[in-house]
């Protein structure tokens, strides 16, 4: 807040890194999913993601079958329900790009279009993606989507084009604006999603991770994912 006159204040703008300043590795964005809070049957995070990233603007092509289109439409976050084979315990959780520290999608990309930012985000450069889908073959989480159809409406913040691959960006357009939340986190009324800077020990996500035992999915691959889950 900046005082311009007695009793008159200017709302200060969020502190965004200027566009010409490279992203640094001073931060690493991460997320903790508390599966004990994730409510069965709720898909608020999915709806919020689709709205935020323009996925709801895509229409089924004329003549496409409903069944096939459902497998072909892009989806950055999805809900999954698991049953423990031994105990029968049921767990609900959202799955999305896990923003690995050692992302297989980045390793296999022939052109380097799949890349990792200094702050840990695994992203796709839509200008150099040739649409080979090798990253989708390599992702252990089925997190990536290919744009199978012509795109009519292209959101400015989330560029999209037919024939390229994309996935969850941790709402990078928000982060680069200086915001510190993702759309899925904002939408979760059960507080099951905590997001923040893993390198800041005082951030909410670091505090939550220190407090709750949590695991990474497919820990055997040693990818050091930025998304962790409690109580699986």
């Amino acid at each position: 807040m900046t005082a311009v006159a007695p009793g008159v204040f200017l709302q200060s703008v969020a502190k965004a890194t200027p566009r010409d300043t490279p992203v640094t590795d001073d931060v690493r964005y991460g997320m903790l999913i508390d599966t004990t809070k994730c409510a069965d049957g709720c898909s608020d995070c999915v709806a919020a993601c689709e709205k935020e990233n323009g996925l709801d603007l895509l229409e089924k092509p004329q003549g496409a079958s409903d069944e096939l289109w459902d497998m072909q439409r892009p989806r950055w976050i999805r809900t999954v329900k698991l049953k423990n084979n031994l105990t029968g315990r049921i767990t609900s959780l959202p799955m999305m790009c896990q923003h690995c520290e050692h992302p297989p999608c980045v390793d296999v990309c022939p052109t380097g279009a799949s890349f990792q930012r200094a702050d840990g985000l695994a992203l796709v450069d839509r200008h150099t993606c040739i649409g080979c889908r090798y990253c989708m073959m390599a992702c252990p989480y089925n997190a990536r989507s290919f744009i199978h159809e012509n795109v009519q409406i292209k959101p400015t913040a989330v560029p999209r084009g037919k024939g390229c691959v994309e996935s969850c960006t941790f709402c990078v357009h928000r982060l680069d604006r200086g915001d510190m939340t993702t759309a899925c986190q904002d939408a979760c009324s059960h507080d099951a999603i905590v997001f923040g800077d893993l390198k800041d020990p005082n951030s909410a996500v670091s505090q939550a991770m220190a407090k709750h035992t949590n695991v990474e999915i497919r820990a055997d691959l040693k990818l050091n994912t930025a998304v962790r889950y409690t109580d699986i």
Binding site: V46, T79, K83, M95, N142, R218
Partner: peptide, 14 residues
């Protein structure tokens, strides 16, 4: 993805 678990519902063909 989830050893020791069975996926009983998924919104995306898991």
């Amino acid at each position: 993805m989830f050893p020791g678990h069975t996926i009983i519902e998924s919104a995306y063909y898991d």
